[in-house]
Nucleic acid binder design. Sequence first.
DNA 1: TAGAATAACTTAAACGGTTAAGTTAATATG
DNA 2: CATATTAACTTAACCGTTTAAGTTATTCTA
Lengths: 338, 338
Amino acid sequence: MKKLKDKLTINDIAKLAGVSKGAVSYVLNNKPGVSKEVRERVLRIIEECGYKPNKLAQALAGKRTNFIALVIPDISDVFYAKIIKGVERILSKNGYFLNLYSTHANPEKEQEVFDFLNTGFVEGTIVMAYHIEKKFIDKMIDLKIPFVFIDYPYDDDKVYSVAVDNEEGGFKATEYLISLGHRKIAFIHGSKEAWDSEFRFRGYLRALEKYDIPFNAKLISRGDFTKEGGYKALKELLSTSEEFTAIFCANDHMAFGAIKALKEEGLRVPEDVSVIGFDNIEASALSNPPLTTIMQPIYQLGEVSAKILLRLLSGENLETKRYLLKTQLIERKSCRKV
Amino acid sequence: MKKLKDKLTINDIAKLAGVSKGAVSYVLNNKPGVSKEVRERVLRIIEECGYKPNKLAQALAGKRTNFIALVIPDISDVFYAKIIKGVERILSKNGYFLNLYSTHANPEKEQEVFDFLNTGFVEGTIVMAYHIEKKFIDKMIDLKIPFVFIDYPYDDDKVYSVAVDNEEGGFKATEYLISLGHRKIAFIHGSKEAWDSEFRFRGYLRALEKYDIPFNAKLISRGDFTKEGGYKALKELLSTSEEFTAIFCANDHMAFGAIKALKEEGLRVPEDVSVIGFDNIEASALSNPPLTTIMQPIYQLGEVSAKILLRLLSGENLETKRYLLKTQLIERKSCRKV
DNA sequence: TAGAATAACTTAAACGGTTAAGTTAATATG
DNA sequence: CATATTAACTTAACCGTTTAAGTTATTCTA
């Protein structure tokens, strides 16, 4: 006895239409070789029965899966979530579906992801990887599946990659402070291993240089990207009693910590000290004072990567491998002219 | 000429090992019927070649796909992103992979998602749907694929659902204010169609009742869940010149707007007016003063749903269909005793 | 009007696995 | 020692499609 709830197959449709399953397949794929009448009859039956071809079988028989893998360190991070949205906007418009893989920077899970990518399900991959090992990249290349890296720190020609121009962002932030008349500008680093903080710092240096402001190592401190880190970093800065009128923090969280520390010392922001952050997180519009900061083009990061992947999937071989996206200055109330 | 880069199949392994592909399959699936030597030889060859079975073929041949679909209104929303993380934690541990579907509350995309769910790829579905139409639910049921709803407002026995106990949360917030001695407590609603705000309001009413505080309609205002909405709602409240010593806002964003409005009127938080929010968004720890609020068990929402789905997938038929998760009071600095 | 070309199909071989059923040789049983 | 049982395979059908190759009947061409 046949199970009633069994899903309809192409055979059922063929039987109902009184043709072979080959004919149904041609109709399904809009290929020639079927008369108008048969085509219409088959389509009608398909419609009536609500038949949908089994994608697994289609994919196995050589058709595409339309699956794109997204490997990502942490989904709950707004930064990555927004990138995903950017990716999704482009890919879903082109008929692709998204598969999510969290690695949590866990090598074991990373291997699992590889094994999966290697099983024929996915056509292309977008890798969001803050920390990337050489081994990972070589493995990805071996897979022979088109892929693009997001937020990839290196400028090599082995992989396609899209990243934010952190140096330009750092330059922009510093130049802005300089344009407001500041010349004693402190910088608060993120964590030691953080390459993005490093690039922002380079932008800071380049801006100082451009405007002939001598670099003062005493104005450099280091946090860890957290509010507490920024707080401590600023306290340290204060303890050297080196004067400054502005601070550029490598991210917004540290800027909040710095502002808290300043307030505790009786210093007002921006009246006594100007503070600029980086990232433009949600809280920076809500804080007191609203934080002037550098906005990363996060959605764009996803969109550009998706567009590149789309071109790779269609067989193109792009000459440019490395894409750098520009940041934007968001002027709010935490900086002012001196 | 065979293409060199062609992926290895079970046939290749069989040939290399000098056995039939059936034997290889038995080894692959840890089934009996193969001698120790053959098993070891095959495993060694598989290891050496880095062979991975094609999941499409496996799935088609009756094995599972291990795919779970996640349908979600907006990935870039932290709320949903966190739920996903909760889901991912549980499901990936159990060998499942996640497929993401954004509907953007767009009926056309919704239909696309359905068509996809209907093609044999996914074994189960978790639907995060703030606005749900009856039609959608009936379609889901027709699909015969196990599914659970997250953040589902209704209490019916047709579908499995997990939601936050908003009423209990509203009660908790209000009771907390009452415990601090407040009796004139204003409430700011979210948008009109928002059922979660409605439930929070019911909790507010229940708390008033429990402590014999008469309900005063003049203390109720309505925002739209945004900071601006909260700002306006509070201004309206103020314009009635009805006295209050505390405000319960249906979400944190509105609480920030309310605090801004209060400050403009020269009222201090919490010295003159206590403010409590709902959601515990990131900014509420960073604001001035740090906002006392009600935390939703967001990760848990994802985890519980995933666990339920897991049980459904294993064929269980759970007696409870509706799961309500408790909120938690986060005491910070925006409320104080009167 | 015979032969070629074409339209409209059908047939069957793939795709890469799983698995029930069949085969063979070795071992156990009475 | 003949027979039943079992272990260790092999064989082939099957999953639900696509598609190249084969088959007709019809139309076109010379």
